[in-house]
């Protein structure tokens, strides 16, 4: 974990790109966060995060095909790279390891 580090929001976006597969683009990710996480996000934040993740090499992108929706504008579809997947795994494991240190209380 020395070199790269992901913020909470970055991790969320990266995970969603991985989950949405062929349908991962800015507006869809924002919608997904809104419906699944019940959390207000603003579109520009998602975009900026996507660009930053792409800069870091965790994502690749290409323009999708044109449709009649959204005024004919194409989407930029994101795919997670191997580095990105590895990063997610590292983060998840680190979290699981940390979680194990917490004394497990029986809830309820």
């Amino acid at each position: 974990m020395a070199k790269e580090y992901l913020g909470e929001f970055e991790e969320l976006v990266l995970t969603l790109v991985a989950a949405l597969r062929e349908d991962a683009y800015g507006a869809a990710i924002a919608e997904e966060i809104e419906t699944r996480m019940k959390r207000e996000v603003n579109l520009s934040a998602v975009h900026v995060t996507l660009y930053r993740l792409e800069d870091k090499g965790f994502l690749k992108s290409s323009m999708g095909g044109g449709t009649n929706e959204r005024g004919g504008r194409r989407k930029r579809i994101y795919i997670i790279t191997n580095a990105g997947l590895a990063m997610l795994k590292v983060m998840k494991e680190a979290r699981v390891n940390l979680w194990k240190l917490v004394p497990q209380l029986k809830m309820g």
Binding site: G26, A27, H47, R70, G71, R73
Partner: peptide, 11 residues
């Protein structure tokens, strides 16, 4: 520009 505009319109 194109994708941002598209996303904004979709939203």
């Amino acid at each position: 520009l194109e994708e941002i505009e598209g996303d904004l319109l979709q939203k």
